[in-house]
Design a protein around this nucleic acid. Sequence first.
DNA 1: CTCCTGTTTTGAAATCTGTCAAGCTAGAAG
DNA 2: CTTCTAGCTTGACAGATTTCAAAACAGGAG
Lengths: 124, 124
Amino acid sequence: MSKQELPVADLNAVACCSPIAVRPMNAEQAAVVAPLFKALGDQVRLRLMSMIASVPEICVCDLTPAFDLSGPTISHHLKVLREAGLVDAERRGTWVWYRVKPEAFRQLGALLEISAAPAGSSAG
Amino acid sequence: MSKQELPVADLNAVACCSPIAVRPMNAEQAAVVAPLFKALGDQVRLRLMSMIASVPEICVCDLTPAFDLSGPTISHHLKVLREAGLVDAERRGTWVWYRVKPEAFRQLGALLEISAAPAGSSAG
DNA sequence: CTCCTGTTTTGAAATCTGTCAAGCTAGAAG
DNA sequence: CTTCTAGCTTGACAGATTTCAAAACAGGAG
């Protein structure tokens, strides 16, 4: 599980593009980035992400009881987060530990940056 | 249309909470914020958002031809963006102009900020 | 080996979403 | 008034998403 389990749609391509407020995204870039936002576009996943990102690492056994949801459902949401490349999981003995992948997280933040001037300066 | 058309689920509450990597979000905060991410979690909407955010304002007539989609579909996606509070629309004569709502956009960016340690400065 | 606990996978049901065709509304121009 | 164009709404449908129960899997303990 600590080994990467899928290609993650060339996540490095995210780093290639400007903040979305700087220049229009083409279809290809949007196809790479949209799934990241989509992964966070669910209450449960957003809370999971926040719980994971707030600490160095956290066990599924500490994640699950925070919700009124079944274990499989939490596991499913964690999988979505994993497949989006936002978190990483590692089994250590009985428990599985999750931690954030800071690159993906940082790139997502960079996408939302307002570069310099909001709507006045003419960008080339 | 320039008048706000719905309550936008107390968008100000977004400003109230720390970046998601700082402290775990509670269910209430997540319920406010998740729809914003969800709105951007679609290729078409992400491109629309990017096109709108890249310029001071833009006409629907310039948005639609950038996609292989029907007018109603684009209109639907723009409505989602509007209802999320991310953009604003105004009819001027024949055309409808869209522009970004910078507060919402900025707050979304703030949510993804990595507060102190960029997780790379000192390997932990 | 068996048993127990923690986590993931599978399978299925209910709900939500993206899309288009058809129809409607707002404004401009005759 | 009518007609034309730009954009929105409605209704419908295929496909995706969320959820749980049941089963499977991984590792520790007896």
